[in-house]
Write a protein that binds this DNA or RNA. Structure first.
Lengths: 252, 252
DNA sequence: AGACGGCATCTGGCATACCAGATACGAAAC
DNA sequence: GTTTCGTATCTGGTATGCCAGATGCCGTCT
């Protein structure tokens, strides 16, 4: 009998400051509901350095990443600004999302297991007796879970990575994506159709329904999203909204 | 009559070292045909600092970007390695490309001007009399131009940005994308069909043809791309291929 | 001869200092 | 009072140095 080898967990040394700062900033930006408050939000490297307790170097590297992902804009010797996407940019983001998710639906119809497809029903089981319109927060969560599940069932890691970031941008305007028109009812209907198409392994239908469902959101924003551009107009210097931005390493 | 104001060009101060290093490294990595040479390619921050004549700081920030885009892998205290994508990753990249380009074709059918669509024919006019198989290099260029044109005609800036990076990854295996089977002939046929669908403003058909055309490439890689994974196996320490990597600021 | 372990060295992560362009403010000129 | 211009200050970009983990060489022990 071999000696009882002690069980040691591998140390979490892989988390560099840069990656932790990156997650912290991304989390803080997403949580601040930038589309609810006018005025430009400005970040300061040295201030962040104080708040987070690390030097500017890893902060700059994290900001470099966030700039490429479209969350902030770095203006040399001017400042760092949280980006508010224009109406057109948001529509294009939704269109790109529709393209990737409809492809994911196509793959899911071909590859997903029967169990995984059946599990999709469970996401909305809680709303069969209750009116989704009266539980918008929970329904919104289930909605997001549904779309992420479609991507996951495609078993294409790259589609998942590419859509994750798009999701974050779209999630920022989630107040616009629900609670208007009869979008909730239509959403329930569309999801029903997509799951049914997956069950029947009808790749073409699943792809088309997924595409049209998300493009419907794009049309909705096209019609009701003009306020998104208004927010960027109100950038008078006085409205510099940099007070409410707080951040800490290792957010929840 | 106002005094003749002297005409001065705006200074190119917008190009930071970071962005120049980023472009230089990206260009160097793409140009080195990593899929033609086995063994891992390793980069050294200090060596690059010497070659490029800038300090490590902008180089590190550029490398951070390249890591996120999947071109290099940073291993703390171990090294910086040029990434060779696996067969599965390349297939998934092509699938994502197919998703975005087919959506672009749909939009192009709705938005593109008649002139722009007609111009697509011109890209292949030079090959009507000559056999494309005997001018593979030129045909490959025209092929790329065609796909980029489809994206451009969609007038969706975000689709363009997202596909640009995917293109680079796929371009690295371009030797696999042509000169096999009767892919060239099928390519001519497919392109013909796509342009015709655009002319008829048939969005559904254009989308489907564009998707199937690119997914055909994915299937081709699926069948003949096993060697891509072999390359990653040959990573014995002796094969460290770091000699041939040269880079300079402001590549052509 | 093989295995272990100490030590020199390499390398990416991080902290810090300095630089120059941009900005804000106020004094001076009109 | 308005405009102009110099200057102090702010801020991101860059250069540099130190740190610790990883690696590899080599001597020592068995």
């Amino acid at each position: 009998m071999p000696p009882p080898a002690i069980n040691v967990q591998p140390l979490d040394v892989g988390a560099t400051f840069r990656s932790r700062v990156y997650r912290a900033l991304k989390h803080a930006i997403v949580e601040m509901d930038i589309y609810d408050h006018p005025g430009e939000v400005r970040l300061d490297e040295r201030q962040l350095s104080d708040q987070l307790g690390v030097s500017r170097t890893p902060i700059r590297e994290a900001l470099t990443l966030l700039e490429q992902e479209g969350f902030v804009r770095l203006e040399p010797r001017r400042g760092i600004f949280v980006v508010r996407k224009t109406k057109t940019e948001i529509i294009e983001t939704i269109v790109a999302w529709a393209a990737l998710e409809s492809m994911a639906a196509r793959l899911a119809a071909q590859r997903a297991s029967d169990e995984d497809i059946q599990d999709l029903w469970k996401l909305f089981a809680a709303f069969e007796q209750r009116n989704p319109s009266e539980h918008l927060k929970e329904y919104s969560d289930a909605n997001i879970a549904f779309h992420k599940a479609i991507i996951r069932l495609s078993r294409a890691k790259m589609l998942q990575e590419m859509t994750d970031n798009l999701f974050i941008h779209i999630r920022a305007i989630r107040k616009l994506t629900i609670a208007q028109d009869n979008r909730v009812e239509r959403s329930v209907h569309d999801h029903h159709g997509i799951i049914t198409a997956l069950e029947r392994r009808d790749a073409d239908l699943a792809e088309r329904l997924a595409r049209d469902h998300t493009l419907g959101l794009a049309q909705h924003v096209e019609r009701h999203g003009d306020f998104l551009d208004w927010l960027n107009q109100l950038s008078d210097g006085r409205a510099r909204n940099d007070g409410g931005f707080t951040v800490s390493l290792d957010p929840p």
